[in-house]
Structure formats: C-alpha cells, structure tokens
Amino acid sequence: MKKINVLCYYLFASIGVAFLSSPATAQSVKKYTQNVEPQGATSVQMQFTQSAGTLKMSGGATTHLMEGVFTMTNQAWKPEISFTNQNNKGTLIVKQPGGKNVNMDDGDSNDWQVRLNNSIPMDMELTVGAGQSTVDLRNTKLSKLHLKAGAGDFTVNLANTSVPTLDIDAGVGEMKLDLSGKWSNNLEAEINGGIGEITLKLPRKTGVRVKVNGLGSIGHEGFKKEEGYYVNESYKKTSSTLQIEINCGLGSVNLELEK
C-alpha cells in the first residue's frame, strides 16, 4: 500500500506563510503567460516543482493541456516549461529554477496559477516548498498523484476523480484532503506524518477503511473502529473501497464524512 507523508511543524509553517505572504510592490512584478498544447497526446505524465510561493491549480483548460499564469518579483524564478510527446504519451515538466535555493525577502512573491485539461488522463508528481497551495482537481482524469509538500497550508480536492493511487508527503503546516464524491474503482493511499493536522473528507456511499499509526489525536465522527481500522457504514457494502493508511507523529488526524 502506498503512503501519504505529513510532517507538520506549526511554528515553522506560520513563519513560512507570513514570510511569503507579504505584498510585493506593483512595479516590481513580472508576469508570464504560457499555454501548452496536447499535440495529440492521449495521456500525460506531469511534473510540477515550485520551491516557494503560492500555487493555485485546477482543471478547466478546454483546448490546451495547460494554461499557466506566473507572477513573480524575481525574473530568475520564471519556471522552466517543457513538453514532449512520444507515441501519444506526453511528458510535461514545469519547474522553478534553482531547486531549493530560493531566498524570498519581504515584498517578494512567486505566484503560479495553473489550469489543466479535464479530459486527458494524467499522472502527476507535484513538489511544493514553503507557501500556500490550493490544488483542485475535481472531475479531472487523474490516474496517480504524488504530492510532496514543504512548509505551509495545503488544500487538495480530489472529489469525483476516482484516482486509484495516492502518495502524499506533506511537510510543515496543515493538510486538508477531499476524497468525497463518487468512486468507480478502489483507492490505495498512505499518509506519513510528523507534527500537525491532517483533515480527510471521505465519502459516505463508498466503503472506506483507514489505518492510523502514531501518537496524535484522532477525530472520527461517523466512523467505527473495527479490528484496528476506522470504517464507515458503507465498508464491505460497495464494489469500490478506499484503503488509506496514515502514519503520523505528534499532531491530529480528523476523519470527516461528506454531508
């Protein structure tokens, strides 16, 4: 079973978010817009790497594979974007130059707004450093997601994606993960964590079984404990099952059922 890692240290998270959220002066901002065409690709592997800043990612691109708007106060942070297509299998890479060696001062900003195609199946590897990330991939054709997060607040909405494989390493801060909606297949997922808060929103009408390891507190309203697992009322009653393992240290885990 694959794992979702969550390392949440609130002190560093609050410092990192405050540090990154200072407004930049209007005259210092550089803005770049770039669209990527699918070029006939019927599936795509995607790699996004942002060292620090804010990220807003969603579906909604209609004819393009990706629509990106990148706003920053340092031209050296302009992301490098490449796309190749071999035998209708595409590879999209969007990365911030310099890896982790990005120093942001008061007044600096590095904001990515990315929209992805809803109809092309995609595997995604997403690495984000310090900052705030909102990833809303509802109703996209997501076949795999590996998210590695640094310091900050991370909101990930995968409702109605039926993604079969999920692997998240979340760093310093708070992780909110929405897995609600309709499921047409099984899910194998794992979350490994340190200190912080993990909130999972889970479906009512699809079977769910969650294993939680670690020293943190657990909120599980609507779930019952059965042989060391937390299960909902639909467990063993549906053709699809969400199997989730969470390994956390000091912190809290909140299991919530969709309304």
Results as ranks from 00 to 15, higher is better:
residue 256 E to V: 13
residue 18 A to Q: 12
residue 47 Q to D: 14
residue 131 G to Q: 06
residue 180 S to D: 07
residue 166 L to D: 05
residue 216 G to K: 02
residue 71 T to D: 12
residue 75 Q to Y: 06
residue 128 V to E: 09
residue 103 N to W: 13
residue 149 A to P: 04
residue 181 G to M: 01
residue 195 I to E: 10
residue 78 K to N: 12
residue 23 P to M: 04
residue 194 G to T: 03
residue 32 Y to L: 09
residue 98 G to A: 03
residue 155 T to Q: 13
residue 10 Y to A: 09
residue 119 S to Q: 15
residue 64 H to F: 08
residue 129 G to Q: 01
residue 171 G to D: 03
residue 79 P to F: 01
residue 68 G to S: 13
residue 245 E to R: 08
residue 181 G to N: 06
residue 224 K to Y: 07
residue 72 M to K: 03
residue 191 I to C: 10
residue 175 M to C: 13
residue 72 M to E: 08
residue 164 P to H: 01
residue 169 D to A: 14
residue 242 L to K: 02
residue 230 Y to E: 01
residue 135 V to F: 05
residue 157 N to Q: 11
residue 250 L to R: 00
residue 76 A to M: 10
residue 58 S to F: 04
residue 135 V to D: 02
residue 236 K to A: 12
residue 21 S to N: 15
residue 226 E to Y: 08
residue 240 S to E: 02
residue 145 L to Y: 00
residue 231 V to N: 03
residue 226 E to D: 15
residue 199 T to H: 05
residue 168 I to E: 01
residue 62 T to F: 07
residue 15 I to W: 11
residue 196 G to K: 05
residue 151 A to G: 07
residue 250 L to A: 07
residue 43 S to H: 10
residue 238 T to E: 06
residue 86 Q to N: 15
residue 193 G to S: 10
residue 218 I to P: 02
residue 19 F to L: 15
residue 120 I to F: 03
residue 66 M to L: 14
residue 252 S to T: 10
residue 201 K to Y: 09
residue 87 N to D: 15
residue 155 T to Y: 09
residue 197 E to Y: 06
residue 203 P to E: 03
residue 228 G to H: 07
residue 113 Q to G: 04
residue 154 F to G: 01
residue 230 Y to L: 00
residue 111 D to Y: 12
residue 199 T to P: 07
residue 201 K to W: 06
residue 41 A to S: 12
residue 56 K to A: 14
residue 48 F to H: 10
residue 93 I to Q: 13
residue 231 V to E: 06
residue 46 M to T: 13
residue 29 V to C: 08
residue 247 N to A: 10
residue 203 P to Y: 04
residue 217 S to R: 14
residue 106 D to M: 14
residue 13 A to Y: 02
residue 36 V to L: 06
residue 217 S to P: 10
residue 73 T to P: 01
residue 72 M to F: 02
residue 253 V to E: 03
residue 120 I to V: 09
residue 119 S to L: 11
residue 227 E to P: 00
residue 17 V to H: 08
residue 56 K to E: 14
residue 152 G to M: 00
residue 68 G to C: 10
residue 223 F to D: 05
residue 85 N to W: 09
residue 259 K to H: 11
residue 220 H to C: 08
residue 11 L to V: 12
residue 61 A to Y: 04
residue 73 T to D: 04
residue 128 V to W: 06
residue 188 E to N: 14
residue 37 E to M: 11
residue 179 L to R: 02
residue 158 L to M: 04
residue 90 G to L: 04
residue 187 L to D: 02
residue 230 Y to R: 07
residue 7 L to A: 15
residue 135 V to R: 06
residue 98 G to M: 03
residue 78 K to V: 06
residue 226 E to C: 08
residue 74 N to E: 13
residue 136 D to K: 11
residue 242 L to P: 01
residue 115 R to D: 13
residue 179 L to S: 01
residue 169 D to Y: 14
residue 228 G to K: 06
residue 256 E to W: 06
residue 61 A to F: 05
residue 7 L to Q: 15
residue 204 R to A: 11
residue 127 T to D: 11
